[in-house]
Amino acid sequence: MTIKIGIASNHMIHPTQTLDTNYFDYIQKDYVDAIRKAGGLPVVLPLGDPSDAEDYIELVDGLLLAGGQGLSPVLYDTEPIREMAESDIYRDRFEIALVKAAVKAHKPILGICRGEQVINVALGGTLYQDIYVQMGATEKHNQLPTSWEIPTQHVTTTADSFLDKLMGHRFLVNTFHHQAIHDLGKGLTAVAESDDHVIEAIESDDGNVFAVQFHPERMFRTTPAFISIFDHLIERAH
């Protein structure tokens, strides 16, 4: 049986030098490659209306939510601070609907970076719009211009969590974010954090929803252990 994993797409909504106003839906190729490497069949889901979410989830066995823009704080009843960068309410609402539909259908969800934040907000949680201003983070959580595939920051996992079992108690990850989880959503537990206490992974009580703040899809080729996170999604989807 081939396991089909829906990957929610982003959409280009700004003119570019080469494409002008030829807008399009897209997903970064590493997400597709990681699902294939783990033995799944990637199915890219074009951004749609939230009312389409249940129909999309019926087509797949599991869901992957990728990185991208920050979530709009209006979705967790907060006003934007001046450090708030670009958000996309259309993508936000659609992906939140996908999470709710997948939870309702008891299908596994893996969130990556923004995807972790989407899951948290979909389940009633809140975010720090900027971890430096609002929580006093002291580490460099956006490693650019250092290359994406190079791990630069340690995280420490909770014993017996999915990430502890897959990757061990303490290991290096890459990092590209300035938002992070504040209040956890319903049924979610923080299962990894950075040394300055930013939440780096979460897991649901039933183990069917899990997410990381870092980007394993950018590291699995040079650090093969990270493919285990995608293997875990495929195993949960069986």
Rank of each mutant, 00 (worst) to 15 (best):
G6N: 12
I13Q: 10
I13Y: 14
Q17A: 12
T18Y: 15
D20I: 13
Y23L: 02
F24H: 03
I27E: 11
D30A: 10
Y31Q: 01
V32A: 02
D33H: 12
A38Y: 14
G39V: 05
G40N: 04
G40W: 02
L41Q: 15
L41R: 14
P42M: 06
V44L: 15
P46K: 07
G48D: 02
G48H: 00
D49M: 03
D49C: 04
P50L: 08
S51V: 00
D52R: 04
D55F: 05
Y56P: 00
L63I: 13
L65V: 08
G68I: 07
G68E: 12
L71Y: 07
S72L: 08
V74M: 09
V74L: 10
Y76Q: 07
E79K: 14
E79D: 13
I81W: 02
I81N: 08
E83V: 06
A85N: 15
D88S: 10
Y90Q: 14
R91M: 01
D92I: 00
D92G: 01
F94A: 10
E95M: 00
A97M: 07
L98Q: 06
K104D: 12
K104W: 12
K104H: 14
I109Y: 09
G111K: 03
I112N: 09
C113H: 07
G115P: 09
E116I: 14
E116C: 13
Q117L: 00
I119Y: 03
V121M: 04
A122M: 07
Y128G: 12
Q129K: 13
Y132M: 11
Q134R: 06
M135Q: 15
G136E: 14
E139R: 14
H141S: 10
H141M: 11
L144E: 11
T146L: 07
S147P: 09
E149N: 12
E149Y: 12
H154I: 02
H154W: 07
H154R: 06
T157V: 12
T158C: 07
D164W: 14
K165M: 06
H169T: 12
R170I: 01
R170D: 10
R170A: 09
F176T: 05
A180F: 13
I181H: 00
D183T: 13
L184E: 04
L184H: 06
T189W: 01
A190E: 07
V191T: 15
V191A: 11
A192G: 09
A192M: 09
E193W: 10
S194C: 03
I199F: 04
I199R: 06
I202W: 02
S204L: 02
S204C: 08
S204Y: 05
V209K: 00
F210C: 00
E217V: 06
M219W: 13
R221K: 15
R221P: 02
R221F: 05
T223E: 15
T223H: 15
P224I: 08
F226K: 00
I227D: 09
S228Q: 12
F230K: 04
A237V: 03
H238I: 00
